[in-house]
Computed example of a mutant assay.
Amino acid sequence: MEEKNNKKYAGQVIDIPRAKSRLSFTDRLQRMTEEEGEPFLNIFSQRSIYLVSLFDFEKGSSLIANIPVGDMPLIVKRTDCAEEAMFRLSSEELAVSDDVGATETQTEISPAFQPLRMGKLAGKAPGDMLLESLNKQAIVATLTSQMEFLKQRVRQYPKNQADITAISTALECFQLGILEDCKPDESQAAVQTPKEKNYIIYKTPVKHQKKIIDGMHPCYSVLITCTPTKEYPYRVELMNCYAPLGELKSGMKPVLMEQAKDIRKDKIDLTEAEWVRVVDCLKSNLEAARQVWYPALRTQDAKNRWNGNAS
């Protein structure tokens, strides 16, 4: 009998599937206990984490990392700030568009020179790529491939149409030999080109696990960023490796990355809606667990309080 998903993926809070990979977040929350010695009203044990896993279907392997629950408030706050930045950017773009339409003397910039928002070509204008490249045929092939990829997903992601229009216009102008004439001057480009800022939502140093394998500790790091101008603005990057630990006079044991082995890295880009849903699910799950455990832990905490009226 085939195992049901609610058993196979027990503990999973949310996952984001892709054709070749899957990003998932698993609940590894633990309630505070007497043995840990911390206040019961902290609710969560210091060992409470969300386990992040990025599985590669082709390789059949995962990269994993831990996000302590204590880091969640910062992730939520920075996500809110990134969302505000994206909202402002979209509002500014609409304002600029209205100003351009209302000003007769303003020359409209060809879509061929509008920066792309998707994939490895994000931030680059297809017109500039064609004009600046020494290997025109290779750039034509790259742009054509990207355009076909975007067309396949335009129903699911309507904003792809802007990149499709930019690429098709650039290719048409290039074939007609008029691409150079369509290039905007510097003053026009300064008005139209969006500023590509990169916001750090969450970043860890390289951390190590306690277990040792052949004198090496499994290590990991997490980097979550947001680039508001991109179609997939959020990026989750994971790194796994094995490395020995040093020892400082202070007692700290830093990871010696210069001696690290089997370094593996991978990343996944998420839409705005996907990342907001991830954060909402993790936050809601945390609050639900808090509500379940709070009554019993408050009762235990009350027993430990000093009672001045006791005889």
Rank of each mutant, 00 (worst) to 15 (best):
1 M>S: 13
3 E>F: 03
5 N>T: 14
8 K>T: 14
10 A>M: 03
15 D>T: 13
21 S>W: 10
25 F>S: 10
34 E>T: 13
34 E>F: 04
49 I>Y: 10
49 I>F: 08
52 V>T: 05
52 V>L: 15
52 V>C: 08
54 L>R: 03
55 F>Q: 01
58 E>D: 15
61 S>P: 00
62 S>W: 02
66 N>V: 02
66 N>R: 03
69 V>L: 15
69 V>E: 09
70 G>D: 08
71 D>V: 00
72 M>S: 03
74 L>N: 06
75 I>M: 15
82 A>Y: 02
82 A>E: 05
82 A>K: 03
84 E>C: 03
87 F>N: 13
88 R>V: 14
89 L>V: 07
90 S>F: 02
91 S>G: 06
93 E>C: 00
101 G>A: 05
105 T>I: 15
106 Q>C: 10
109 I>S: 07
109 I>A: 00
118 M>E: 13
122 A>M: 05
128 D>Y: 03
130 L>C: 09
131 L>P: 03
131 L>A: 01
131 L>R: 06
133 S>V: 00
134 L>C: 09
137 Q>I: 01
138 A>I: 00
140 V>I: 07
140 V>A: 00
144 T>Q: 14
148 E>C: 07
149 F>T: 15
151 K>A: 10
152 Q>H: 13
155 R>K: 08
157 Y>P: 00
161 Q>D: 07
164 I>D: 04
166 A>I: 10
176 L>K: 13
181 D>G: 00
185 D>H: 08
195 K>L: 11
197 K>R: 04
202 Y>M: 05
205 P>I: 12
208 H>Y: 13
210 K>C: 01
210 K>F: 06
214 D>S: 13
216 M>K: 10
220 Y>D: 05
228 P>H: 09
230 K>A: 09
239 M>I: 08
240 N>F: 02
242 Y>C: 01
243 A>H: 06
243 A>I: 00
255 V>E: 05
256 L>D: 12
256 L>S: 06
258 E>K: 06
260 A>I: 06
262 D>Q: 13
264 R>A: 12
264 R>C: 02
264 R>M: 13
265 K>T: 11
266 D>G: 10
269 D>A: 15
270 L>S: 11
271 T>G: 14
274 E>I: 07
275 W>L: 12
284 S>P: 01
287 E>G: 03
287 E>W: 12
297 L>C: 11
297 L>N: 10
298 R>T: 03
298 R>F: 13
300 Q>R: 06
300 Q>A: 07
304 N>V: 01
305 R>H: 12
306 W>E: 04
310 A>I: 11
310 A>K: 14
